[in-house]
Nucleic acid binder design. Structure first.
Length: 287
DNA sequence: TGACGACAATGTGACTGATC
DNA sequence: GATCAGTCACATTGTCGTCA
């Protein structure tokens, strides 16, 4: 038999690797989140076998679709992290409506520790949301490239461009209500003035009705800031939001990971008590 | 159209090496 | 010894082209 295989549905080989549909989804996911560990890829359901994951990911690295780096998870332990490679940029742009310039920047970027840890944190928060076992049910988890929003406003006759770039947007169902939660992952290394500017951007996003236009809703969103720092950081940050016109609430990553989104672990500037995300649910019509 | 063979992808388990 | 990451061998499965 002269077996010259026809091009499979997986598409043509690139750099010696025949990309499967799963490969393309893995590349898209890594492009979406910036960096993902092998364990996270497995937890997201891309692989059910460690060896299979290793072998397939190694092929993608050899084909320059991905790059591999390491983050210390303990004194003598490393976690393998995958980021977008130069060949993966084209695949990610081809399969998704990602900004090619932004993707090329990702593909070239040197994987600095802080950059990696931030992105891994956002994926970890997504996994917590997926595992959620309370009354909250995750409907969508929209990563940064998909929820970033460039819009224009007119201020004193001048057109000003604004960019809203949350870490993620999680949409939960709670009973008959929907809860839109912008996720911000904080590692405690951003200055308070920078954080104040971040909260101000969310206020403007609501006040300038850009959010309402983008998502065709009048139901206000909540900003949930998850920090790897401790209670003092939460107190400092919540003081910045005392007069905020949008709902901003805080918790630690440790609390979130152990108790989940639905637990009474959220602290706002309005109260000393920890409460749930939906208590009270934002009133319809505006904050 | 169905059988067959080639090829690629997959999962499992065993193994190695590094570290605590 | 326990744990973790990575690799390898092997059997299985799925896809696809060829041919009767």
């Amino acid at each position: 038999m002269s077996a010259s295989r026809k091009p499979s549905k997986c598409g043509p080989r690139k750099s010696g690797v025949r990309l499967t549909s799963r490969d393309r989804r893995v590349i898209g996911e890594i492009a979406r989140y910036g960096a993902i560990s092998r364990g996270q890829l497995m937890e997201l359901g891309f692989f059910s076998s460690v060896s299979r994951a290793n072998r397939r990911l190694r092929l993608l690295v050899e084909g320059k679709f991905l790059r591999r780096t390491f983050v210390a998870t303990g004194p003598q332990q490393n976690s393998t992290i995958y980021v977008l490679g130069p060949a993966g940029v084209d695949v990610a742009v081809e399969d998704n409506s990602f900004d090619p310039i932004e993707m090329k920047r990702h593909g070239r970027r040197s994987p600095e520790r802080m950059y990696l840890e931030h992105h891994l944190g956002v994926v970890s928060i997504r996994l917590v949301a997926i595992r959620e076992s309370s009354d909250l049910r995750l409907l969508r988890y929209i990563a940064e490239p998909d929820c970033r929003h460039e819009y224009e406003v007119v201020v004193r006759g001048r057109v000003i461009k604004r960019l809203m770039k949350p870490d993620a947007l999680a949409v939960f169902a709670h009973g008959d209500s929907m809860l839109s939660v912008y996720i911000e992952f904080d590692r405690g290394n951003t200055s308070l003035p920078q954080m104040a500017a971040l909260f101000a951007r969310y206020e403007a996003y609501w006040a300038e009705t850009a959010y309402q236009s983008a998502y065709e809703t009048d139901i206000p969103f909540t900003v949930a800031l998850v920090t790897t720092a401790g209670r003092r950081r939460i107190d400092n940050l919540s003081r910045l939001t005392r007069r905020a016109a949008v709902s901003v609430t805080f918790t630690t990553f440790a609390q979130l990971e152990s108790k989940g989104f639905g637990a009474a672990i959220w602290k706002s500037a309005k109260t000393e008590e920890f409460s749930t995300l939906w208590d009270p649910l934002p009133e319809g019509g505006g904050p």
